[in-house]
Design a protein around this nucleic acid. Structure first.
Lengths: 243, 243
DNA sequence: GATAATTTGTTCGTATGTATC
DNA sequence: CGATACATACGAACAAATTAT
């Protein structure tokens, strides 16, 4: 009884963080990571230690850790410990995939976002691409053309196209931009598959090849003025068609 | 011996789901959502029911639900039940935030990304903003100017500036773009605070006010040509200074 | 190779807070 | 107001995996 009274007393005096215990543990761990107290790859305290140090139950600690593991922030080596992840994890875009599933009519939003990113990427690539990058892009383009010639399936076309764009994004030399583009590409894939299926033709494929060639040209000539025209043409044909 | 042999036998015959109990619960719930067995907004079974129906412990169910809540797939009405989310949630971008943090805090990358998004947002806003949006932006600008006049702290300046940009992003009418910008703003805040602290002056503040005015003008005149110039000027002064 | 120690994985029991009727 | 249903939180116990001795 006295114990509960003491606890109640504390709670009443305290501003009483209204977040749940689990949320506070999550915040504490993430703050430690952000502040540099915990570095990527480093082992975090054991569950029991965390229980003691912040006076919470082990289950709450476990729930917090599970959340961070699901987000790709931590990873667990069983019977060894829990560690701070290093760099990006594929898991980190799962929530956005769920978001896509839950929300039906966001095709327009997705296309708009992709278009915006395409413009930005092309501009940055023109600024930052090295000759080596351009050479790789040419190779990737050759691969795309080869795929196109060989009576490709929808999936093969999309794969080749995405590969080309990934190469382009690498030429930006900015991992943050690259990762965001990857996420959006993954989200767009289903929509693009449907659209491609609908409008596929030999002529369309030739047009896409030509657009890719224009991207390469713009890169070689560092021609920023050409960017908006290229992307406009790129998106033109399914602008009004899809949804 | 015989026991271990029996276990090995089971393992060999069985595909033996090597995922953890929690992961299987997560998969089961998400599959139910994807298949339409659980619809957005619908209540899922209570924790106890889930325990019984799949013969697992209550804590495992809780951990699974916590993960899905953290991802924004489920939400909880306390003392009422747990429900399938409808549409996107802010939470779904959180993992990406952590990803960016863990990727290593390279300031240049962040500034480049922010710049790219600023250009895209301004372009999209020029296309999509309603008169009402522009009116709100003017109000937000007035608030910013007021803050600036009143001998503001670094935090106050940043808050007012972010508020202005949030209003601008709303004018894009694209929740995906909006969320991504919010994430990047959150990430940039520390860097920006440092930079602002370093170069703060009355003259600088006036210059920022003027740039915001130019953004409003561009929006009113639907002047896409002005975009790159505005953003160039916006980033000019800390382009070479920071890192 | 076997054993012990450490650490995470899973479950159960119980008490408490909170919203609805 | 009480009763009910549900989520929240803690503690204890045992299982399983890995490392160290």
């Amino acid at each position: 009884m006295t114990e509960t009274d003491a606890k109640k007393g504390e709670k009443l005096l305290d501003p009483m963080d209204n977040r749940s215990v689990v949320d506070r543990i999550i915040a504490r761990i993430t703050n430690a990571i952000i502040s540099g107290e915990l570095l990527p790859g480093q082992k975090i305290p054991t569950e029991s230690e965390l229980c003691e140090s912040m006076h919470v139950g082990r289950n709450s600690v476990r729930e917090a850790i599970k959340v961070l593991v699901a987000m790709g922030v931590l990873y667990i080596k069983r019977a060894e410990g829990t560690f701070v992840a290093e760099g990006f994890s594929d898991r980190m875009l799962d929530p956005m995939v769920y978001g896509l599933i839950l929300e039906g009519g966001n095709t327009r939003y997705l296309i708009e976002l992709r278009r915006m990113l395409d413009v930005g990427v092309l501009n940055l690539a023109i600024q930052n691409a090295t000759d080596e990058d351009i050479e790789k892009l040419k190779q990737s383009f050759a691969g795309f053309c080869e795929t196109v010639r060989d009576n490709p399936s929808i999936d093969e076309i999309l794969d080749a196209d995405i590969k080309f764009h990934r190469t382009l994004e690498k030429a930006v030399h900015n991992p943050l931009v690259e990762k965001i583009c990857n996420v959006v590409e993954r989200l767009s894939r289903a929509t693009r598959a449907r659209a491609t299926e609908q409008f596929l033709s030999k002529k369309e494929l030739d047009r896409i090849c030509e657009l890719h060639q224009r991207i390469i040209d713009a890169l070689e000539n560092r021609d920023e003025a050409a960017v908006s025209g290229i992307i406009d043409d790129h998106y033109q044909y399914w602008k009004d068609e899809v949804r």
